[in-house]
C-alpha cells in the first residue's frame, strides 16, 4: 500500500456540538476528491457516526476529551492496477469498545439504536479497528469508483 499526502488533520473535543463542523469538512473534502454525491453523503455519515460512537461509548459522554481525525489520499498499486481512494483514521484515548458491538445489528429488528455501525459499514470499503495502550484507532477506507479497477496505461511506440 502506498500512503500519499495528508489532506486534512483535525483535533477536536468530544463535544457533540462540534460534529456539524466535521460533517461540513468531510463533505467538502469528499466532493473535492471526486466521490459521487451519494458517496459523499455516505462518507460524511460514516465519520459522523464513528465520532458519535467515540463520544458516547469511549468517552461516556464527556465533552472535553481529545479526538483526532486524519484524512489521507490513498494510491494502492498492485501490478498494473492502481486504486485511488480516501483513508480516514479516527483516534481516541477512551475506553476500548466491545468488539462484539462492532458489527451492525440485523435491520429486521425494528428498534431504536444500533444503526451507527450499519451506516459506517454501508459507506466504506474497509473498516479496521485497533486498540493499543489506551489508543483506539478506527481506519475507514473508501476507494474512488472510477479507480477501483483502474489499469495503468503504458504508451507504446
Amino acid at each position: 500500500m502506498n500512503r500519499t499526502g495528508l489532506l486534512l488533520r483535525l483535533e477536536l473535543p468530544s463535544d457533540p456540538e462540534i460534529l456539524c463542523v466535521v460533517r461540513s469538512a468531510v463533505m467538502r473534502l469528499t466532493e473535492e476528491m471526486g466521490f459521487s454525491p451519494e458517496e459523499c453523503r455516505g462518507l460524511t455519515r460514516a465519520v459522523d457516526e464513528a465520532l458519535a460512537n467515540i463520544i458516547r461509548h469511549a468517552y461516556d459522554g464527556r465533552p472535553d476529551q481529545p479526538i483526532e481525525v486524519l484524512c489521507r489520499r490513498l494510491l494502492n498499486r498492485t501490478g498494473s492496477e492502481q486504486r485511488a481512494g480516501l483513508e480516514i483514521v479516527l483516534v481516541d484515548h477512551g475506553a476500548a469498545p466491545d468488539r462484539k458491538k462492532l458489527c451492525g445489528r440485523s435491520l429486521d429488528d425494528v428498534r431504536p439504536g444500533g444503526l451507527g455501525i450499519h451506516f459506517i459499514e454501508d459507506a466504506v470499503d474497509v473498516m479496521q479497528y485497533t486498540s493499543h495502550a489506551r489508543e483506539n484507532r478506527l481506519r475507514l477506507v473508501k476507494y474512488l469508483p472510477n479507480a477501483k479497477r483502474e489499469t495503468k496505461v503504458v504508451k507504446g511506440d
Binding site: 456539524c20 431504536p112 444503526l115 451507527g116 450499519h118
Partner: peptide
Amino acid sequence: NYIDSSGVASLVEGLK
C-alpha cells in the same frame, strides 16, 4: 438538513 442514527432512533421511539 441531516439526521444521524440517534435521530432515527428518536423517530423509532416516537413511532413505538
